[in-house]
């Protein structure tokens, strides 16, 4: 089943003085359920823009986008917020957690806006899954870089989303910790969650089942290693 279908996605940034930057120039992309896609490309190639569009954070673009077979082009901001909450989990490179807030409350953040049954139980299971059982009550500023990313992953999974979007999740951590994070993400993908990962590191990309290379807003290569 197709989870994401993008057709002719174009994104133009209007800079001051009337200059325009074409961040995406007609991207067509289909991602199947349970896929693990790594999006690679140099800085400014448009990979983060693509991730923001897929994650329903950006709505100023042209083209067609169907999420779980439904067009999301004309959705209201509130509907998009609902979908972000329920269907998509985000892991960012930096500023992933609320400062001075405990690990458990950071994981529960998405449930503040839409609570579901057994939120706390789920959060505790996820803490165990990411191996931070003993740090549930620690504040986010007491954690190491790797621990922060593991909390972010647990938070991304709290609403049991269809898609996990990770924007350079290993960007700020050492290679050994990066391996732990990638193993965790791989495990999550193996359990059925579709993963889309942005990276510019080949050894991170190799965890994916499919690698898409982007340059100047266009997909230049789509390969299965």
């Amino acid at each position: 089943m197709k989870v994401i279908e993008l057709e002719g996605i174009r994104k133009v940034y209007e800079a001051r003085k009337g200059n325009q930057t074409n961040a995406l120039q007609g991207v067509d992309l289909t991602i199947e359920e349970g896929d693990f896609v790594a999006v690679m490309g140099p800085s400014g190639s448009g990979k983060s823009t693509l991730l923001h569009i897929i994650g329903l954070l950006d709505k100023k673009y042209s083209g067609e986008y169907r999420l779980n077979d439904k067009s999301v082009i004309n959705l209201s901001e509130n509907k998009r917020a609902d979908l972000r909450n329920e269907e998509i989990g985000f892991v960012f490179q930096r500023f992933n957690l609320l400062k001075r807030t405990t690990v458990i409350n950071n994981i529960l953040l998405p449930t503040v806006y839409r609570k579901t049954k057994d939120d706390l139980k789920r959060a505790l299971r996820l803490i165990e899954k990411v191996g931070l059982n003993d740090k549930a009550e620690h504040r986010s500023n007491e954690l190491s870089g790797g621990e922060v990313q593991r909390v972010a992953i647990a938070r991304a999974l709290i609403k049991d989303p269809t898609i996990l979007l990770a924007d350079e999740p290993t960007g700020n951590i050492d290679s050994k910790t990066a391996c732990i994070i990638m193993d965790l993400i791989k495990k999550i993908n193996e359990e059925g969650t579709t993963v889309i990962l942005i990276t510019h590191e080949e050894n991170v990309a190799k965890y994916a089942k499919r690698i898409i290379r982007i340059l100047d807003g266009k997909i230049i290569k789509d390969e299965t290693p």
Binding site: G55, A81, N85, F92, F95, L109, Y113, R155
Partner: peptide, 16 residues
């Protein structure tokens, strides 16, 4: 600002 961005990313609506 970044916290607001994060909150919106995880599903906070304008009114939240």
């Amino acid at each position: 600002t970044q916290e607001i961005g994060l909150r919106k990313a995880v599903g906070a609506k304008t009114r939240h």
